[in-house]
Every structure is written in C-alpha cells, then in structure tokens.
C-alpha cells in the first residue's frame, strides 16, 4: 500500500502539465475569472468615483490612477510571469509552459498600451505635456516593444519547437534589460518632470484611494487570468487540432 501512495503523488503533479488535462481546467477557470474581473471592476470604479474624495492638488483628474497604476503594474507583472514560464519551458522541456507564456503576451501588450495611453492623458493636465523621454515612460515603451517583438518573433517562425524556444530566449533577454531600465530612474532624474501622486501625501485620502486601487488591480489580475487561459485554449486548439483527445472532449457534454 505504501509503495502505491509514493508513486501516485509525482504522477498527479505531472498530470496537470499536459494540454489534455489543462484544457478542461481552463474552460472552468475562464468564466469564474471574468466574473470576478467584472465584479471587482464595478466595485473598484464605485470606490474610485463615489467614495474616494477629490484630490486637493490635482482635482478630479487624479481618478485616472485607478486605471493607470493597475495596468502599469500588470504590464510588468505579466512580463515577469512570461519570463517564469519561458524559463520553466527551457529547463523542464514542457510544451505547456511555452503555451502559457505565449498566451499571456498579448494581454501584457494591451496592459502596456493602456498604461502609456492613460499616462499621456494624465500627463497633459498635470505636467503640461503628453510625453516626456524620462526613464519611466521610456522603460514602459521599451516594454511594449519587448512584447511586440516577442509576439512577432514567435509568429514568424513556422517550426513550433524552434518558435517556442527562440521566443523564450528573447523573453529572458528582455528580462536582463528590465532592471537596467528600471534603475535608470535615478541616473536619468534630470529629465524627470514633477512626481506623480504619492500615496503617503494625504493619509485620509489614502484609505479609500488605496482600496479603489486594490480592487482595480485585482480586477485586472482576474481579467489577465481569464484572457490568458482563454488564449491558452486557442493555442492548444491550434496545435493539437488533429489529436484524438480533443475529439473526445468535444463529444462529451
């Protein structure tokens, strides 16, 4: 009996790393994730627009923060997860890891575009300019190009094995660059125009503002999970269209 138990546990672990087992799990996770995303988003917008008070310095325009900061966070966070999955794929040679990484990239690019767009709309009334070539903005723009490069490189190599590995290597190289562009804030400070909102500046405001930020961030997180798993299903479908398990799954209710 004991022997069986010790053998079953590792088998279960690897069971979840094949497209066949993940596909139905993803199908269950997707509606839940999107549902939570909508609920959290509604709650976040309610807190952000109806509970959080007007900023005494910036007026109402600061309410962009509830979409700007979560999208900027997610844009970086998604890249880190892509690096993680790429590393997993290169080390353990698992197809699914590369699929996960690829499923995340377009959402990461969308988050980056949103962060840049809302940043520009926030910068115009507060800094008086849409765009500054300062470290933060430039690093975010580089991140967008990293996402685009990652997607384009993966798409332009027909051989799946090579496409997976090559784009994973690119993701790792981009990760090398991230700390460099991140720490350049200090070296580039001469070009930096005025600081944006600081959460510690007005403690009373911070509570409701912070709540709104947390709710919106969780909502974006849930959206990312839903979108990534949805795209994972697309990737699996595309690659394993001929395999029999998909047919069987289709036949099931």
């Amino acid at each position: 009996m004991k022997k069986i138990v010790t053998e079953v546990i590792p088998l279960n672990f690897w069971k979840y790393s094949t497209p066949k087992t993940v596909f139905p799990i993803a199908s269950k996770v997707i509606p839940m994730a999107f549902l939570f995303a909508v609920i959290l988003c509604v709650a976040g917008i309610y807190v952000g627009f109806f509970v959080a008070p007007t900023d005494f310095q910036q007026g109402e325009v600061y309410r962009i923060i509830f979409i700007h900061v979560p999208s900027a966070w997610m844009s970086m966070f998604i890249y880190i997860i892509i690096v993680f999955w790429s590393l997993m794929g290169l080390i353990f040679n698992t197809r699914l890891s590369f699929m996960m990484a690829q499923s995340l990239a377009p959402t990461g690019a969308v988050m980056t575009v949103i962060a840049l767009w809302t940043g520009a709309l926030w910068g115009k009334p507060t800094w008086g300019t849409w765009w500054v070539w300062d470290a933060r903005l430039t690093s975010e723009l580089i991140l967008l190009f990293l996402y685009i490069g990652y997607i384009v490189l993966g798409a332009s190599i027909d051989d799946i094995r090579r496409s997976d590995r090559t784009s994973a290597i690119l993701a790792l190289i981009g990760a090398v660059n991230i700390p460099i562009i991140y720490f350049s804030v200090e070296w580039w400070s001469t070009l930096h125009q005025g600081a944006s909102i600081s959460l510690t500046a007005a403690p009373k405001m911070a509570a409701s503002m912070f709540l709104g930020l947390c709710l919106m961030s969780l909502s974006f997180w849930m959206y990312t999970i839903g979108a990534a798993f949805y795209r994972l299903r697309i990737v699996i479908l595309k690659r394993e269209k001929s395999s029999t398990w998909l047919r069987e799954f289709e036949g099931a209710p």
């Binding site: 430039t138 990293l146 384009v152 490189l153 332009s156 090559t166 660059n177 460099i180 350049s184």
Partner: peptide, 27 residues
C-alpha cells in the same frame, strides 16, 4: 542568432534589438 533563417530577418532583428540598445545610447 534569434532571427537566423527567418523571413525578413534584418527588420525583425532591428525590432528586437533596437529597444535593447537604448541603455547604451543613453550612457
């Protein structure tokens, strides 16, 4: 190396590498 043998290799390499050149350009 990443774009070896890929169609439109030079343009693709430029897209991948030019953003990484930025720190060198800056300093």
């Amino acid at each position: 190396a990443l774009t070896l043998g890929v169609r439109g290799a030079t343009a693709l390499a430029a897209l991948l590498i030019l953003p990484l050149y930025i720190p060198v350009l800056v300093f």
